[in-house]
Design a protein around this nucleic acid. Structure first.
Lengths: 181, 181
DNA sequence: AGGCAGTTAGTTGTGTGCAATTGAATTGTG
DNA sequence: CACAATTCAATTGCACACAACTAACTGCCT
């Protein structure tokens, strides 16, 4: 350890994590905040990659990657739609979707067609093969759920928690963005 | 809207089959499983990217990306260590860490030095500048926590849940891996 | 008509993330 | 000591993810 060169006083300017539980009886020095942060962001990051890893294995049979599977889920559920709509469903921009959809097209699962009404827009349409893939995809969710070892209601509770988190973080990102303060 | 040509069934309406009960009691229309899966994997994916986005904004001041910040947290907490150890802490392999650490070196935050004991190993050492950055990093966790709008104990509960999930998923990934069945 | 603002995909550049491979260094075994 | 197996970092190839930019089109305005 390289000691702590921080000249800052150990005085926690905002020492009251108090909140709702006495998880930390002590004021939680700045050092502890970094440890805590380590835990939090690492946990989410690791969970995301672990999830990705399981999906990777399960989806290999279908020849899909995890984000590609998400796009197919949207198409199966909401039908053919332009790239813009896909991006809204998945919160992804064209920089991510354009090459991804092209790979799906190369795989023969979708077609990309310029809208005749508005030539800026590109409709993504399922091919026969893409629609048929749904039949093989229905087994995926159960295998994933089984992998977690969680009960359905536990998963749903976690999902709701994550959605709350995402909503809060998206709002915060807008506030924190330099220039939007 | 393209008039939704989806052959979607008119909502079979089978929300959540009896909670913690094992396997599939009721057939629970395969369609619903796909919808559920959509929700789950999308939620985790979105939360991960939302978290990433907030960290991106907050860490811009420090000139770090989110994964780079994770590496610095490990170095600050556990001291100088070889790439291998870093990878164990973060569950990242050399394919990810090698270029990442080189960027940290280019930024002057760390040095990479071949171990004299074992020349296969590369020690990652904090520079003065890298160690000093910790002083500016201590403000990060509070800003992140504030962004979530969650209380500390809520975050900790979520973290534990995610860790359970990661553990289960890692184990499952090993089982699912073709060739390890 | 002409022009300008807003919208939509696409492209480019940077930075992960992971599988597979390479190559050097080390260790184990006879 | 020689040789095979192992370990570790680095590299390569592919696939996201996002910021910034370009290009093309729409529609509204004067």
């Amino acid at each position: 350890m390289t000691a702590t060169p921080t000249p800052t006083t150990p005085t926690p300017a905002v020492p009251a994590p108090a909140a709702t539980a006495p998880a930390a009886p002590a004021p939680a020095a700045e050092e502890d905040w970094l440890r805590l942060d380590h835990q939090i962001c690492f946990s989410l990051h690791a969970a995301s990659r672990a999830f990705n890893g399981v999906y990777r294995v399960v989806l290999k049979d279908l020849g899909l990657t995890y984000p590609q599977y998400l796009v197919m889920l949207v198409l199966w559920e909401h039908g053919d739609q332009p790239v813009k709509k896909l991006g809204e469903h998945l919160r992804l921009d064209s920089g991510t979707l354009s090459p991804l959809v092209k790979r799906l097209e190369a795989a023969g699962l979708v077609r990309r067609e310029r809208s005749t009404r508005d030539e800026r827009s590109v409709d993504v349409r399922l091919t026969e093969e893409g629609a048929a893939l749904r039949g093989r995809a229905v087994q995926v969710p159960r295998r994933i759920v089984a992998s977690t070892g969680f009960a359905l209601d536990e998963i749903d509770a976690l999902r709701q928690r994550l959605d709350e988190l995402t909503t809060a973080l998206d709002a915060a990102a807008l506030r924190e963005t330099p220039g939007c303060a």
